[in-house]
Nucleic acid binder design. Structure first.
Lengths: 345, 345
DNA sequence: CCTCGTTCTGGAACCGGTTCCATGAATATC
DNA sequence: GATATTCATGGAACCGGTTCCAGAACGAGG
């Protein structure tokens, strides 16, 4: 509607002066600045960022690539990022890209090439080197959440360590017959979270001298999937473990629901630990390793905006920020029943 | 990097011709069109939508206002909208605005005034008349999901009818002592879903001649909240109903988990019905009214894009599209035990 | 008094596209 | 064969800002 030319005319100054007055760059006397601001307010002037970005190259908008919206971790990250960006005056443009989806390439070719945003945050999507280079050539900083990308600032938890910690928690309670139920490498996630959690599990088990053959069952990262796997794995009393390390809280809760239905006491007959810190964990009294997705989102935004403020050399910025996890000990884990059938003393 | 002028130079034509060739508007001979397209491909040219929107007024981007990202209904809607928009070449810019949040006004004043999008979809946020007018003055169509806004195309289910249907399902099974556990008017939602579901419940109950004093308990729309309310409401056996109509599946599932922990058999001792069609419903065998949020999102996008294609007069478009719900009968509902203590025959 | 540096302002170019308008060629109409 | 139409193209203006540059006004320093 109203352009800066209108403001300038009303204030009786040139476009250039009006622009300087409103943006705060360059010399403007205090009296004309006030005149211009008053004129702008009078006609309800709001600058068009499109026009400005055409010449400045800055869009005040950042793009987010994310494989899921409806799963807990991702929606939490998203919410926290949106909040942080809004507070800084940035728009957030969302690209929901299931890893290896058919749209994947076209999004990069088309959407990301349009220089519509100042930077990109990739949540749980491993970009290829070519894609990373592409963004760098455009001078667009990139921050990742959920796993290292070469040459990119990344925020993540240490999945190997978290899995090890969870497993060690069960081991320290006296369990030896422990299962890991989680993702396998071939499924929908780009990053190595699945294999890393598996690695951490194996490492802890081997260190404790426990056998791990047949100790892993694949499972989608959802509650219904955990439930179904639970029904099938716990269905046979002879193969039933004394403890399970689930790769996510949703899986863990599905397992607990399945166990309850099968008449298996948690934790007396079966201990269950998850990873996440899901809001449902408390009502199922689930012991879990909290990973605070909102902090990760917040930090990703801060990192990206800092990079926009004062660009660093790419080499320097090649680093991984590891956020801590913390164990929340609830009553889904305990020492196993004495193997001789008595209760533990 | 590369601009349309470069393409034109390489193809040996004028900027105007290159623009016509690439956009498909206006007369261009087939041979020059191919030359231009080849040149564009050769230098990896991608048009800047910012520059284009400056003159066309179209941004190929739409804004979405939504109060939650992490709750099921909203994340489903969001995912489906993103998918539909991406397929049509539109970007989606997200504004996560908890109703009556402090940022609420500034977003409207600032973000929405910057003519950055061609249209707006408001999911579960009731815009004020002033805000609606503002968008209309800017010529930006607006589509709502989740409840009628004056003068705006809206997509929703009939919450009164859905609540009535759910209640009637319980009544038809022979229940009389039915509770409604759901939202109250004063909580965080803008729209009237809460009060409408309550209205439908009361209507069905009164029609059936059932008393409703003390039959409503307020509850946040989450599983943990349903669980806590369930523990407290079902805790006293004397005040326990034979059936509950929960305003959402998450509440219903929380209630079921609470009932199980209290040793209450579902459905023998207590029938539970929800509204949503949540993916967890199946594993808890929850009878529910499915409301298909993805369809709502999809339809909202289709409606908005159609409006952008061929704008209609505001008066004509003032309408509410009511999407159907359907009852999925699982085993969380059944006839009540005979009040005399025997089993029903 | 002249020169220099600082502050302030306006004119004009520019960002990267689209579109209006004029011109010219090819084809159709009478 | 003269006159309309349709098609094809280039030049230039324009969208709404920012920024470069030149020039004016002013006080300070020599």
């Amino acid at each position: 509607m109203s352009a800066i030319a209108d403001v300038a005319r009303l204030a009786g100054v040139a476009k250039a002066t009006a622009s300087r007055a409103l943006s705060g760059r360059g010399y403007v006397s205090e009296v004309t600045r006030l005149k211009v601001v008053a004129a702008a307010r009078a006609i309800g002037y709001v600058a068009s960022p499109n026009a400005a970005s055409l010449v400045t190259g800055r869009t005040k908008s950042i793009g987010v690539i994310i494989p899921f919206i409806s799963r807990w971790f991702f929606s939490e990250v998203l919410e926290s990022m949106e909040e942080a960006l809004l507070a800084e005056g940035y728009d957030m443009t969302l690209y929901n890209l299931p890893a290896s989806s058919p749209e994947r390439d076209s999004v990069f070719e088309y959407f990301l090439a349009r220089k519509r945003f100042d930077g990109v945050i990739s949540v749980g999507v491993a970009l290829s080197e070519g894609e990373v280079d592409h963004l760098h050539r455009l001078g667009r900083p990139l921050v990742g959440i959920g796993g290292p990308i070469r040459g990119v600032q990344t925020i993540a938890i240490d999945d190997v360590a978290a899995a090890r910690l969870a497993t060690e928690h069960l081991l320290s309670l006296g369990h030896h017959d422990i299962l890991h139920i989680g993702g396998n490498q071939t499924d929908e996630m780009d990053f190595k979270v699945h294999s890393q959690r598996l690695t951490g599990f194996y490492a802890a088990m081997h260190e404790a001298g426990c056998r791990t053959e047949g100790a892993f069952f694949p499972c989608e990262f959802t509650m219904p999937s955990g439930y179904l796997v639970g029904l099938s794995v716990f269905g046979d009393p002879r193969s039933r473990p004394t403890a399970v390390f689930a790769a996510s809280d949703e899986i863990a809760i599905g397992l607990i629901v399945a166990a309850r239905e099968l008449g298996i006491q948690v934790p007396a007959d079966l201990s269950v630990i998850g990873i996440d810190g899901h809001p449902y964990a408390d009502m199922f009294r689930l012991t879990t390793l909290e990973q605070h997705p909102r902090r990760q989102g917040r930090l990703a935004v801060d990192t990206l905006l800092a990079e926009l403020e004062s660009p660093t050399h790419r080499e320097e910025s090649d680093q991984l920020t590891v956020l801590p996890t913390n164990l929340v000990f609830r009553s889904s884990t305990s020492a196993p029943r004495s193997p001789l059938g008595g209760s533990p003393d």
